[in-house]
Every structure is written in structure tokens, then in C-alpha cells.
């Protein structure tokens, strides 16, 4: 199946020494050398400092869903260069490179599956593809995932990781903020829950649209989440930013997210929450 192919081809982003590239990954925060095998069983969380390493979309699916439960929905929608966008290289060239790197058409993977037996529709952004930027394909796939959930009566979980809207599709990217909202309202009208899981980093147009209109907003520990980037803000106000500014814990204390949940506890958290919100009865 598709996931196995990814794991064979893709390597974790931060590799250890060149002598043992397949065995070790260095924690980007505490610099501890971590066995990849241990890292995988620990949901790609550093066992020493608790840092949550960034995941690609396939890894996220593995960490979140019951083994073997994933059926992919996305893939048919392909990006196109409607604006003939040209900067230092053409948009089609950029796309081709990102597609080769990640093995997917755009920065999104959607499908259905189960979390501890609770059926869900899942959409995962892929930061490895052009910084998880949202263009027409991401918007369309997220809209379709929401509509699929509405049609099939499942809750929706969206995992965000994005630098914001995609510059190369200009105003068309911007419109995806509205498109995703329209589809999520279709889901809301069915009385089905939508939970967003904000991961590092979630900024710009994604923060200002579907990520933050979820019924419940969950964030990963330490994730950078905001509208404007911290450096832009620092230069606008010309003073230093407080410690932990725009991090998940900061947002929790400001009332912007419902919970900061360790990756190793997210399955239990989501299964319980979604079970309750969909009034699933369990035998006492």
C-alpha cells in the first residue's frame, strides 16, 4: 500500500551522522541522537526532551490512525499553473520538485480511517510540500474531505502544518480560505464534529480560515501558531517578543485553543472526545 512505499523512499528530515544515515536522527532541539526505531514507537517525540519532531503526512496518518484502517481519498486533484506564475523559476518547475520530493500531487493527504475504533475522515497537510502552502488543490481536497464526512456521517479531523496561502496562485489561493469554510459549514449543518489539530508551524491564511473555526481546536506541544510571522511582528512593533510567543502553550493561556495534547496521547484524546460529541454509547 501507499504508506509502505513512502516509508521506504522517504527519510526523516533530520539525519544523524553520515556514517549511519538510516539508524539515527538527531533531535533538532536537544541534539540527542535518537534511534529511528525508538523514535517511531514514540510517535516521533524525543524521549529525552519531549520535542515533537515534524512529521510528513504519511507519518502523521500512521501515528494517528488505527493500523491498516486508512483508505486514501485525495490524489486525483492536480495543481495547475493558472497564472503562468514566473519568478526565479516557473511554478510548474517548483511543483514538479515538490511532487518528486513528497510523492504526492500537492500539500495534502486525505482519507478515512479509525482512531481507536472511532471512524473519522482525516485531512493532513504536508509541510514537506512547499511549506504546506494552501493553493487550489489543498482547498479543494479539504473541501471534499469535509463534504465526504458530511455525506458519510463521520467526524472530521484536520491536521494543519502550513506557512499559509500559496503565493504562486495569488488570489486563487486566497479564495481557498472561503471555499474550505463553505464546505465546513456543510459538515456543521449535519451536526458532525470537526476537530483541528494544529501542528508546527501553522500560520497565515490557514490560521485565518479552516484551522481556527473548528468545534474543538487542539495544538501540539511547542507548535508555532499564529497569523503573522514572529519576525514581521517584531519589526512592526520594534520590541522583543515575550518568551513562548505564538507557541501552543501561549495560545492555550490566551484562550485560543482548547488543549495542548502530547502526540503520544492524541489518539486517546481524540477517540474519547469524538465519541462523546457523537454521543457514542459504550457498555458500562
Amino acid at each position: 500500500m501507499a504508506l509502505d512505499r513512502f516509508f521506504r523512499r522517504r527519510r526523516p528530515q533530520q539525519q544523524g551522522g553520515a556514517d549511519m544515515p538510516d539508524l539515527w536522527t538527531q533531535c533538532p532541539k536537544c541534539k540527542e541522537g535518537l534511534y529511528n526505531r525508538d523514535l517511531e514507537t514514540n510517535a516521533f517525540v524525543c524521549h529525552k526532551c519531549g520535542h515533537h519532531l515534524r512529521l510528513d503526512a504519511a507519518q502523521r496518518v500512521t501515528v494517528l490512525l488505527d493500523e491498516g484502517s486508512f483508505t486514501q481519498l485525495s490524489g486525483a486533484v492536480q495543481p495547475t499553473d493558472a497564472l503562468a506564475f514566473q519568478d526565479t523559476e516557473s511554478y510548474p518547475e517548483r511543483l514538479k520538485r515538490a511532487q518528486k520530493k513528497t510523492g504526492r500531487p500537492d500539500a495534502i493527504l486525505t482519507g478515512t480511517g479509525a482512531i481507536l475504533g472511532v471512524p473519522v475522515t482525516l485531512a493532513v497537510m504536508d509541510f514537506a510540500f512547499s511549506g504546506g502552502s494552501m493553493g487550489s488543490v489543498v482547498g479543494e481536497e479539504i473541501a471534499r474531505a469535509a463534504e465526504h464526512a458530511a455525506r458519510h456521517g463521520t467526524p472530521l479531523v484536520i491536521v494543519t502544518a502550513s506557512g499559509g496561502a500559496r503565493m504562486q496562485e495569488s488570489a486563487l489561493s486566497l479564495m481557498q480560505m472561503a471555499k474550505t469554510t463553505v464546505a465546513l459549514e456543510t459538515l456543521a449543518e449535519q451536526g458532525l464534529p470537526y476537530v483541528s489539530l494544529l501542528t508546527d508551524p501553522t500560520t497565515g491564511g490557514v490560521t485565518a480560515s479552516f484551522a481556527t473555526i473548528a468545534d474543538v481546536i487542539v495544538a501540539e506541544p511547542g507548535a508555532l501558531i499564529g497569523f503573522a510571522g514572529p519576525r514581521v511582528i517584531q519589526q512592526t512593533i520594534r520590541q522583543s517578543l515575550p518568551d513562548g510567543f505564538q507557541r501552543a502553550e501561549f495560545l492555550l493561556s490566551h484562550g485560543m485553543v482548547d488543549a495542548v495534547v502530547d502526540r503520544r496521547e492524541q489518539r486517546e484524546y481524540l477517540a474519547s472526545l469524538l465519541g462523546l460529541l457523537t454521543r457514542r454509547e459504550v457498555s458500562a
Binding site: S136, L172, Q176, K179
Partner: peptide, 8 residues
């Protein structure tokens, strides 16, 4: 708004 976007 559901319509807007460009893809194949």
C-alpha cells in the same frame, strides 16, 4: 466560493 480555484 465553493467553485473558485484552478486545478485539473
Amino acid at each position: 466560493f465553493r467553485r473558485l480555484g484552478a486545478y485539473t
